[in-house]
Amino acid sequence: MKSGRGLKAATVFLLLAMTSAAQIVPVLAAPAGETFSDPATEARARNLQRQLRCLVCAGESIDDSGSDFAGDIRRLVRQQIVDGKSDSQIEDFLVARYGDVILMKPPVQPDTWLLWLAPFLVLGVGGAVAWVTVKKAASREA
């Protein structure tokens, strides 16, 4: 049963990927009629939408993209908000269905530690090298 659903999702995904790869066209995301009247809830939905990646687009969030996929996920997110789910519950649901790839912000886990730390490692090593260089240059100067 479960694998059947996965297969169906994969097929739909592939079809979406194929159609939108054929025309990478920014047709508008037109969520008129799918907005919440309460500004706070709407802001929450928009914020959540910005954290989710459109899987058939070139790096756009589902908030920015006009693809069918993005529209489907937007409706799904809003339905779950109506159902009273929390942000993290909604994200967990989408991660279970599509994987971490749907999150704009990569998760912090052992295989992404290097991703998160590398910039600061370079900064640290660079700083240390700079420190030694300046010390040496200053001792020559003196």
Binding site: Q51, R53, G59, S61, G99, D100, V101, I102, L103, M104, K105, P106, P107, T112, L115, W116
Partner: peptide
Amino acid sequence: KISVGPPY
């Protein structure tokens, strides 16, 4: 598969 987007 992960995405590295603007929040990163």
